[in-house]
Design a protein around this nucleic acid. Structure first.
Length: 520
DNA sequence: CATGTCACG
DNA sequence: ACGTACGTGACATGA
């Protein structure tokens, strides 16, 4: 691995050791995680790497990897660095680690919630993530290559059509050139602008224009296919590791301020699923011979957490009775019985439920549902009248964020919100929306990390050959030998639902298949 | 290296 | 009055 690709990789040293057959006997602490638990989102905190921690907490500038090895084409490998320089670099790592731990850990130990998040969630999850990264996932390169070829042919034809409709050749992948064609040359109406003030050509705009003009429709399809080809079908086969024959993502444990993981190089948490074309890519993630992929996902987990946190009686009741929550919400908002809720009403309720999790405004809801702002406000008012506990919770959360400067998850994870008292209204309101969202997104992250630890412990304890491969925020993907399928299918859901006792039941849905698409 | 866009939960 | 749903990562373009 080249230094450029190391980026923010932690656990990196552990992988190097493992490559040489050396297993760490146990990791007692990790300053990256200590800092993450203490200071996620805090003012001026951009990362939790050793170098940044040394600068923030010890006012020390560390030797950078580039100072040691150079950069770009002239960069040398660590094994070519003069021993005295390498020794100084390595010794600095060890020294600073201990000094930072002495400073950070007592702050964690002083708070029961933070201590629990650090010791019962983050530290154990760290080892599970290391194993998942090392295990990797099998990807059918031939299948993807065939798709790339097919997508390439269709893209050529779509481009030809687009050029014909535009009356001239242009680069369909250039928003700049596209904007000139659409809005200057053809005079199509500008629907919205980008932050920099230029007319937007994003999907929302093109979809709207596609109702009246042929060119945007071709562009939409070209964009979609170009995305799939460029990001997935072309790239994933190149990410297959020569030694293992599998794709090994990197899970960042201290990047997302809410407590979620982030996946990179490649990102396996954004593999397409929403379109049929996209699901063909997902179908290229396969189980090795003699195995199946098992997917287990928490159903409606953030809404359940909202019910738990708000203690709203109607919402708790809906989940307690196993109701379809969007249907139940629609019935409340529209004043009908659940049986009278059709697809349109349910869709509106679903958008509202998602909006609540995101701290929506009437404007945002109006835009999402293509309504007048007043109509959207009426829906919101109606919702809060029927779910007063949720309304109370939202206001209490904003207030708590203002007075404390942070919000917490059910397990005590802390998210700092420095902009909650910003003088600029836009920034402040942004922080308020983040304050609403963070306890729900963060608690969900806590839950699934606990589940990962529970599942891995179970696998080890029972001596199973099943392996955790991926986590996608509310979903776990495992590779399971056929002989263990019935056990995993039966025991995975209770393992995942019993990691915590909330005021609502947790529900896990399991799927099995030869590939990720079938399992999902 | 910033910008716009779009893939996911 | 004011911008506008939360959290991520990757790609192509173009300066």
């Amino acid at each position: 691995m080249t230094a450029a690709k190391i980026k923010k990789k932690h656990k990196y040293d552990q992988h190097v050791f493992a490559n040489h057959g050396i297993a760490l006997a146990g990791v007692a602490h990790d300053t990256l995680l200590e800092s993450y638990v203490l200071e996620a989102g805090k003012d001026g905190v951009r990362g939790h790497d050793l170098g940044q921690l040394a600068l923030r907490h010890l006012s020390l500038k560390t030797i950078s990897y580039e100072e040691l090895c150079g950069k770009g084409a002239s960069q040398i490998g660590f094994n070519q660095v003069a021993l005295e320089h390498a020794a100084a670099y390595a010794a600095e790592d060890a020294d600073l680690c201990l000094r930072l731990h002495a400073k950070l850990y007592p702050q964690i130990a002083a708070d029961a919630g933070l201590k629990r998040v650090y010791e019962d969630i983050e530290l154990p999850a760290r080892e599970v993530l290391f194993r998942m990264e090392r295990e990797g996932v099998l990807v059918d390169a031939d299948k993807l290559a065939a798709q790339s070829h097919e997508l390439g042919l269709r893209l050529i034809e779509l481009e030809r059509q687009a050029h014909e409709l535009a009356g001239q050749p242009f680069n369909v992948n250039s928003p700049k050139q596209l904007g000139e064609i659409l809005f200057t040359k053809l005079g199509l109406p500008v629907k919205k602008k980008t932050p920099s003030g230029t007319p937007s050509t994003d999907e929302e705009v093109l979809s709207e224009l596609a109702l009246d003009y042929p060119l945007p429709k071709a562009l939409l399809e070209a964009r979609q296919l170009a995305k799939l080809k460029g990001t997935y079908t072309d790239k994933l086969p190149r990410m297959i590791n020569a030694r293992s024959g599998r794709v090994h993502t990197s899970f960042a444990q201290a990047v997302a301020v809410t407590g979620r993981l982030a996946s990179s190089d490649p990102n396996l948490q954004n593999i397409p699923v929403r379109t049929a074309e996209g699901r063909r890519i997902r179908a290229a993630f396969v189980a090795k011979p003699g195995c199946r992929l098992v997917s287990a996902d928490y159903s409606q987990v953030e809404l359940r957490i909202m019910a738990h946190l708000s203690e709203d009686e109607r919402l708790l009741d809906a989940f307690a009775h196993g109701e379809d929550v969007h249907r139940a919400t629609a019935a409340e908002i529209f004043g009908v019985t659940p049986l009278e809720v059709g697809p349109d009403k349910r869709r509106v309720a679903k958008v509202i439920n998602f909006g609540l999790i995101y701290g929506m405004s009437a404007f945002g809801l109006a835009r999402q549902l293509d309504l007048e702002r007043g109509a959207a406000q009426a829906y919101i008012d109606r919702y809060f009248a029927r779910y007063p506990g949720v309304a109370r919770y939202m206001e209490e959360t904003r207030e708590a964020a203002r007075t404390k400067g942070y919000v917490e998850t059910v397990f005590g994870r802390r998210l700092w919100l420095p902009e909650i008292r910003a003088s600029q209204a836009g920034r402040r309101q942004g922080a308020e929306r983040a304050a609403i969202n963070a306890p729900m997104q963060g608690t969900a992250a806590d839950l699934i990390k606990l589940a990962m630890v529970a599942v891995e412990n179970w696998i080890v304890r029972e001596g199973l050959q099943a392996r955790l491969l991926l986590q996608v925020h509310d979903e776990l993907i495992l590779e399971v030998p056929d002989a263990e399928l019935s056990r995993v299918r039966a025991e995975l859901p209770p393992l995942m639902t019993q990691v915590a006792q909330l005021r609502v039941p947790l529900v896990v849905e399991v799927g099995v298949g030869a590939n990720w698409d079938e399992a999902h």
